[in-house]
Amino acid sequence: MSTSNAEQNRLLKFLSCEALDLNLFRGQSKDFNTGQVYGGQVLGQAIKAAYQTIDEGRHIHSAHAYFLLRGDVNAPIIYEVDRSLDGGSFSSRRVVAIQHGRQIFHLSASFQKQEEGLEYSETWVPPFDVVEEALANGPSKDINFQAGYLDVCYVPNERIERNDTTQYWFKTKDSLPDDLALHHTVLAYISDMGPLQATIQPHDLNAPKLEDRKRQVLLATIDHAVWFHRPFRADDWLFYECRAQSTGNGRGLAYGRIYAQDGTLVASTSQEGLLRLRR
């Protein structure tokens, strides 16, 4: 790791879970000035806790989560892991996150050992020139509440062909160890950024900038899923495209795809959340 990580990678330290007992872990919260725990934090820490109960050589391939209650940024979170299955090829885990004696989140996750199989992926080369232009112009000026941990470069709306889509490049500021499980945890953490923003895009809320439109609506994640397709590095630039699928009845649904620079699809996401106009 680089010298900036001499003590410990800041994001990995934040996502770490302290083992309290068999199948019981504790993670710390952080206030990003949103008034509640960032959903990606709970998802990432829950996956980290589950990984600590999985045999070496098995890696997560899918995670399905429900966010039940707003998390308290001033209190730690307890993660209870249920070892649902350890089969010949797959392991299944259920993780419940608890604060103040109440469930705030639960996760179902599946892990698999490496296997040979039929290989196919849609191919599409994302616009890396957006990153190159941004780097040539100096430090990014994009609004990013995760700026302490992540480099983020949004694709301008005029470069996106559809009006229901958000696109951005991202990577961790600090380099990460060569441990795929850690990269999975970090990607899960990041994957909560973007899908609900995409559900705002099709609507004319009388504000030209996305950040101004976001202030007119109440957004909160209800459920979130991630599928991990291929190995990747979260400390190298990855491209996240989120596209709205449906909005109505106070909810919005979006799908996401995460690509490496060469166009390899490394992960897919889906997310449904509250999408309510503020009164």
Rank of each mutant, 00 (worst) to 15 (best):
A6K: 15
N9A: 07
E18Q: 14
A19C: 03
D21Q: 15
Q28Y: 09
D31V: 10
D31R: 06
F32H: 12
N33S: 06
G35P: 10
Y38K: 05
G40L: 03
Q41Y: 05
G44K: 03
G44W: 04
I47H: 11
K48D: 01
A50Y: 03
Y51K: 05
Y51W: 07
Y51H: 14
Q52Y: 01
I54C: 01
D55I: 08
I60R: 12
I60N: 07
R70G: 05
V73S: 00
P76S: 13
P76G: 10
S84N: 15
D86A: 13
G88Y: 11
G88Q: 08
S89F: 04
F90G: 09
S91H: 12
R94K: 13
I98N: 04
S108R: 14
F111I: 05
K113N: 13
E116F: 13
G117F: 07
L118F: 12
E122I: 00
T123W: 00
W124K: 00
F128L: 12
E132G: 13
F145H: 15
F145Q: 11
F145P: 13
Q146M: 15
G148Q: 12
D151Q: 13
C153L: 10
Y154A: 01
Y154H: 02
P156I: 04
N157W: 01
Q167M: 15
W169R: 04
K171Y: 03
L176R: 10
T185L: 04
Y189W: 06
D192M: 04
A198D: 10
Q201G: 00
H203K: 14
D204M: 05
L205M: 08
L205G: 06
E211I: 09
D212W: 14
R215A: 02
R230W: 05
R233K: 05
R233H: 01
R233N: 00
D235I: 14
C242T: 04
Q245L: 01
G256V: 07
A260M: 04
T264S: 01
V266T: 01
A267G: 01
T269Q: 07
G273D: 10
L277H: 15
R279D: 12
